[in-house]
Write a protein that binds this DNA or RNA. Sequence first.
DNA 1: CAAAGATACATAAGAAAATTATGTATTTGA
DNA 2: TCAAATACATAATTTTCTTATGTATCTTTG
Lengths: 113, 113
Amino acid sequence: MIYSSELIKGTLKTIVLKLLADNKKMYGYEITQRVKELTFDRIQITEGALYPTLHALESDGLVTTETEYIGKRVRKYYSLSPSGKNKTKEKVSELADFMETMKFLLDIKPKTA
Amino acid sequence: MIYSSELIKGTLKTIVLKLLADNKKMYGYEITQRVKELTFDRIQITEGALYPTLHALESDGLVTTETEYIGKRVRKYYSLSPSGKNKTKEKVSELADFMETMKFLLDIKPKTA
DNA sequence: CAAAGATACATAAGAAAATTATGTATTTGA
DNA sequence: TCAAATACATAATTTTCTTATGTATCTTTG
């Protein structure tokens, strides 16, 4: 079972930031594979969604990049900047908080019947 | 603190369906107020988001409507159809499942210091 | 050794879903 | 009486993702 894509909306940036916080530096393709692994294939980040997100994080100054060559193939590593680290803490705790709220909302039992 | 709007994206339909499951019938404005109450003002559904969502649920056959007049003012009540009840169960359990996965993702600790 | 599949980047067109703004109208409360 | 709350609705814009496409290299397998 794969989560309907609408659920991933709004959480992608947070997922990426958190992975970078946990791993110091990662490249795009690696991120897609790691998320796939960690979620047992239930969340699959597409490249069309990921790369624009990474570029946005970079232009917001939340990540820095370094390019490496593996043979002739280019690989672009992303790392959190200091402000990226702060942003990650904010985003992760906001999402955790939000999930508590949602859990509460979804647990409410009917008054009627 | 109000959750950043991107977090609400993708969960709105599920929230609305779940509220209708718990309350048999509700009208739009009531839904916005109920969500505000239940979340201590942290989730505020705007009318521009809610009404199109309700109309979509209706055209998908997930809810039925009945119009009532309170004085001269119109009030449009929404109720779940049988297929809406099934859909609600699906959506709620998918979201609950998704939140477990996200919780796991966000809890992962750094390997590197 | 050729071909398929995996690795690795990127961007553009289109779709989906929300935000923001606007509009109408009634009712309530200060 | 006048502002705020109640109650609906829609349109323009923005944001964000999907889908499609493009390029290129490396690895595995028949």
